[in-house]
Design a protein around this nucleic acid. Structure first.
Lengths: 223, 223
DNA sequence: ACCTCCTTACGAACGCTGTTTGCTTATCCG
DNA sequence: CGGATAAGCAAACAGCGTTCGTAAGGAGGT
């Protein structure tokens, strides 16, 4: 239809694009997925909606990705890309704290990540973060099984705190009140909870740092 | 049809049951759900399959439960019922360790639980477990914000370790090998991982206990 | 013994979901 | 210009959670 002799100079701008209107790529799919996830949550990401968001038919996505789960895995690794792995404080302990805080913060910025945390991650950014974690623990002087054990403990702690935080914040104000009432109205059965849970407009970040400090204290090798 | 004059003595045993063949209850539903979940995993639990397992139509379930998610929440609380909350070691620390180990073990016994951990739990058994946790920490001498902070840290750690363990064990042998190869073949990019991850036929229980010890060391109030 | 009430059960349908198939369409190369 | 090659996609499929109107069957009054 185009590209004939009657083509006039300047028509480049009229033709859709020299290469098929910007080609669908895995990267574009993942970015669009993250936009949808951030804007409307994990449940809102359906193949059809994602395709629509890309101005594309649903079946087209399957040319670039094998399943929807693939998209989620890629999206999560993209979140891990936000974690700064180099950040020189000199002090290994300060740096480790920074790494884990950044890890947690990145996940909290994308609450839908909680739904995907429960499966093995092997993406490059995720592995880069873990490499950094191991390297810092080595700097700290850990060796043998102590090192993976420490990495395991710290990872568990971060993952768990993200999960609980998101679970708590994703229910609305009224549900939280109802939960608090539920406990305090059964103070006979839950006496200790009734006392301490009411004081629970906690500063999550401070609590996280506190627990992390405890862990790091325990992990530091005996001297 | 029955119950007429032609009814003969002894026929009680032939009639289905005096009260409608044992009535469907929320409890029966939850137990059946756990059976299906344990036997075939989280994905296999569909409303129709659950109904079939109960010898009942799918729509019937909605007379006893508002949504499928309700069933999952109830099932998870049922798992928490397996956690012994009283178990006198005298020593608070030993008891706390026992409680958290039992908590983790119960969840690991039902790997589908990992899919549900990411939402607020308010069931009676879950609350009983948490009350026990708070009570033990109070016994340990914690007060003020230290107490919920410690509970938070310990919970995070348990939840996280369950999640990671299940994520890892749910992929088959070949996938685990592929993952290990993937890392060790990129030892230029992941030097520390390549060294320590290969030694990773870890004893998960020992690692868990190690981390827990670290946490408890850090949590114990200064004297 | 019959009729009525009322709880309980459920087949069928609705609007979704992720994924596959086979055809159409657009671009590139000779 | 023509034929090859790749990309895009409507339609269909099987299955999902959930709703609705209807049917079934024991309880209680007459």
């Amino acid at each position: 239809m185009a590209r004939t002799g009657e083509e006039k100079p300047g028509n480049v701008w009229l033709r859709p694009s020299t290469t098929r209107r910007d080609p669908l790529t895995r990267e574009r799919i993942v970015n669009a997925a993250i936009e949808v996830l951030d804007a409307h949550g994990a449940d809102a990401l359906t193949v059809r909606r994602l395709a629509e968001h890309l101005g594309v038919g649903a079946a087209t996505l399957y040319g670039h990705v094998r399943t929807k789960e693939d998209v989620l895995d890629l999206a999560l690794d993209s979140v891990y890309a936000e974690v700064r792995t180099r950040d020189d404080h000199g002090d290994w302990r300060a740096e480790l704290t920074g790494l884990l805080r950044a890890w947690r913060a990145a996940l909290l910025r994308h609450p839908w990540s909680a739904r995907i945390l429960g499966r093995p991650q092997l993406g490059p950014h995720m592995l880069a973060r873990e490499e950094r974690l191991y390297a810092l623990l080595a700097t700290a002087g850990l060796t043998g099984t102590e090192l993976p054990d420490a990495a395991y403990a710290l990872s568990n702690y971060v993952i768990g705190s993200v999960l609980m935080r998101i679970a708590w914040q994703e229910q609305d104000e009224s549900a939280r009140h109802a939960a608090a009432d539920h406990v305090s109205s059964r103070s006979d059965r839950y006496p200790t909870l009734a006392v301490y849970r009411t004081t629970r407009d906690t500063d999550w970040d401070r609590s996280f740092d506190n627990g992390l400090r405890c862990l790091l204290d325990g992990i530091t090798p005996a001297r």
